[in-house]
Design a protein around this nucleic acid. Structure first.
Lengths: 179, 179
DNA sequence: TCAAAAGTGTTAACAATACACCCATGT
DNA sequence: ACATGGGTGTATTGTTAACACTTTTGA
């Protein structure tokens, strides 16, 4: 939950990108405007309008660049958030709700994964965000029928069991509406 | 496309409501935050951040209170909009896209209709927003299966043909997510 | 009696669900 | 050889789509 101020001659999304990078070192991730929070009393000290953005970060890039400017930043599970200031928990809830909704009708899930991923990892994303188990066979039928991913030909060996095929999205970077 | 300034101690949605009422006389309609437009050069004169809201107005209330404060306000079909200032056409397009998307997964369509309406009127809303014809029998099966509306027992006589039953929504005012 | 919109059912195609076992690997 | 996660097919149910005629009314 980084927060910062908009510079003159800076677009809103650029401000969000800059703040994210300053506090975490992360660049080039999916970023979407979430909502603008402007209740007159949300910050008791002064009138603040916050144009909130949220980013989705591939699991392999979830690091905190220690360079990050000495402010206390950290990653937390959604249901293990620490105390947050003002209405920041409401902001987090709004983002979580947006995410759950978008999972159903967009390809947003890929934004959580590295370029190559296994079908089990993709299924994990759906199960975690939906907070419920998904049938493996039906999930694989569903995702392959949608023509969004393709096998890379590579496999991942990962412990004492059969290796998993690695897939990639056909249109990386793009979040599309599906149905 | 009214636009106005936020007062101290006024919430964003209240500002939008106030502006809508000042310019059209319309109150108590569905209002939703659309998006916040903040490109640094969207207004060449000065830096402006616009937190845009959109309202949906029942067809029987689409009037302009002539009291409206002398600014030029008017109703226009979406595809017959006059020249608009700055990025205001982009704002209108964003609202139209939101509407088309929401039609599919919410009960937003009812917000365009009076308290009592016929199934043909409801079908018209879907056809107009989708810009394509809808099968009458399938539409009626679909909408009745969803348990959102009920017959009022009244009919509307409207020309030299069979009168239409009037329906109402079961939970007026509420826009719900459906699937 | 005519024109105009309201109202109504069946069938076929497709999509979603439920469900259980074998496969390939590392230890 | 065993434990682990990877990988696969079928039958059933539910949902969506295509399609045409009768009803009621006012003029």
């Amino acid at each position: 939950m980084p927060g910062g101020f908009l510079n003159m001659d800076e677009d809103l999304a650029d401000c969000a990108k800059r703040e994210l990078e300053e506090e975490t070192g992360i660049k080039n991730v999916y970023l979407e405007q979430l909502y603008t929070f402007g209740k007159h009393d949300r910050d008791p000290r002064e009138r603040v309008i916050s144009v909130a953005y949220y980013a989705l970060i591939p699991s392999d890039r979830l690091t905190l660049q220690p360079a990050s400017d000495a402010t206390e930043a950290g990653w937390f599970a959604y249901d293990e958030l620490p105390e947050l200031a003002f209405d920041h928990r409401e902001i987090a809830r709004t983002a979580q709700e947006r995410l759950v909704a978008k999972l159903d009708y967009s390809t947003i899930a890929f934004q959580f994964l590295p370029k190559q991923f296994t079908l089990s990892e993709l299924q994990d994303v759906y199960e975690i965000i939906r907070s419920e188990p998904v049938d493996k066979r039906n999930f694989r039928k569903w995702i392959t029928a949608r023509n969004l991913i393709e096998a890379t030909g590579n496999e991942r060996r990962n412990g004492s069991h059969r290796p998993a095929q690695l897939f990639r999205t056909k249109r990386p970077g793009r979040v599309e509406i599906i149905r």
